[in-house]
Amino acid sequence: MDLVSFARGPALEVALAVFCLGVVWRIVGFALLRIRRNFNEPRNSLVKAIIGGVIATGSRSWPHSEFTVRTGAGEALGYGYHIGLFIVILAFAPHIAFFGSLFGVTWPALPNSVITIFSVLTFTLLLAVLFRRVTHRVLRMLSNFDDYFSWFITTLVIVTGLMATAHIGGPYQTILGLHILSFDALLVWFPFGKLMHAFYIFPSRAINGTLLSRKGAAS
């Protein structure tokens, strides 16, 4: 069995199973945790608190005006590569063919030249966020293996994808195999590292926002 066949065959099957198992495990595990009872008099009604939670989900998507100067650039970098990743993953024809065979649904693709531009931009932004992480004193102290490995595995998928498209670094099928294999590795790592924020980010904002709003905090 060659590398491509292995990567899109048994490796992908196992990676997909681990991904689903891990994601459901963590979501169910968190969802069933007991929320500590609050004995204080609620400042807001439950409905108002839920509305506050919904507002907080959106309003926390950009730093408060007080912190914009200090953290705005970092957040903008984050948004930049996230948008780039979404475009590259969802609008590249071979990726659409991949999703099509998995879920039976396809959609129009963007031209390869546009995808290549977004891929290069995304890679550049990923380098920039790494640079910021290692040069920012506080951020560096807050970072652990999880942060760096999650960055590495995401960047590896982008780099091998670019190499496959540009036909550099070896025979196409080898690079394609490495690209799919790196995606398989990303799927396996996803539920157990910080990449899981993709599933947690909005529910956690909503839950925290609701609880704090119930206590009277501004959303």
Partner: peptide
């Protein structure tokens, strides 16, 4: 086929859900 995917995803999700329930129970 999407059916094959459902088998893999469904089976893994069922095991994941059981592990999640067990983890939450232990935590509680």
């Amino acid at each position: 086929s999407p059916g094959d995917v459902l088998k893999v995803v469904g089976g893994a999700a069922a095991v994941g859900a059981a592990l999640g329930v067990a983890s939450a129970g232990l935590s509680r």
